[in-house]
Amino acid sequence: MKIAVASDHAGYSLKEEVKAYLESEGHEVLEFGTKSEEACDLSDFIYPASIAVAEGKADRGIFIDGVGYGSALIANKIYGLNAAVCQDPFCASLARKHSNTNVLCIGAKIIGSAIAMEIVKVWLTTDFLKDIEKYKRRVDKVNEISEKHLKKL
Rank of each mutant, 00 (worst) to 15 (best):
A116S: 15
C105T: 14
L22C: 10
A72V: 00
D131V: 09
K15A: 06
S146A: 13
F90D: 10
A84H: 09
K148Y: 06
A20Q: 15
L42I: 07
I74E: 01
N100I: 09
G26M: 07
A84T: 11
F128I: 03
N100Y: 07
K151M: 08
G26Q: 09
K141D: 13
I145T: 06
L104E: 05
A72Y: 00
P48N: 11
C91W: 13
Y135H: 15
T101P: 02
G112A: 08
E37W: 01
C105D: 07
G11E: 02
G11H: 03
Y69L: 14
G56Q: 12
I111H: 00
E25N: 14
L14D: 03
V53G: 04
G11R: 00
K152Q: 14
C40G: 04
V139T: 10
A39Q: 11
V53A: 04
T126Y: 07
K19H: 08
A4Y: 04
N143V: 06
S71K: 05
E25D: 13
L73F: 10
K134W: 08
V139M: 08
R96E: 14
A84F: 12
A6Q: 01
L94M: 15
I115C: 09
V53S: 03
T34M: 04
A75R: 02
I111Q: 05
D44W: 10
K57F: 11
Y47Q: 11
D88Q: 06
A39S: 13
E147D: 13
S50L: 09
F45H: 05
V5C: 11
S13W: 04
L14H: 02
E25F: 08
P48M: 06
F128V: 03
C40V: 12
K151W: 08
Y21C: 10
F90V: 14
L81Y: 00
I119L: 01
V53E: 03
P89K: 04
K57I: 15
G26T: 10
S93K: 13
R96I: 13
I74Y: 03
D131H: 11
E147G: 02
E23I: 05
H98G: 10
N76L: 07
G107T: 04
G11M: 00
D41Y: 09
G80F: 04
A108T: 01
E147H: 05
D41W: 07
A95G: 15
C86A: 15
A10L: 01
I46W: 00
D140Q: 14
A95T: 13
F128R: 02
K19M: 11
R96K: 15
A20N: 15
F32K: 01
S99I: 10
I64C: 01
L42P: 00
S71G: 14
A95K: 06
T125I: 12
L124H: 09
N76T: 10
H98Y: 08
K15N: 08
F63Y: 05
E31F: 12
I78T: 15
K15H: 09
S113I: 09
A39W: 03
V29E: 04
L104Y: 01
K148E: 11
E55I: 12
E37P: 02
N100G: 05
S50F: 00
V53T: 00
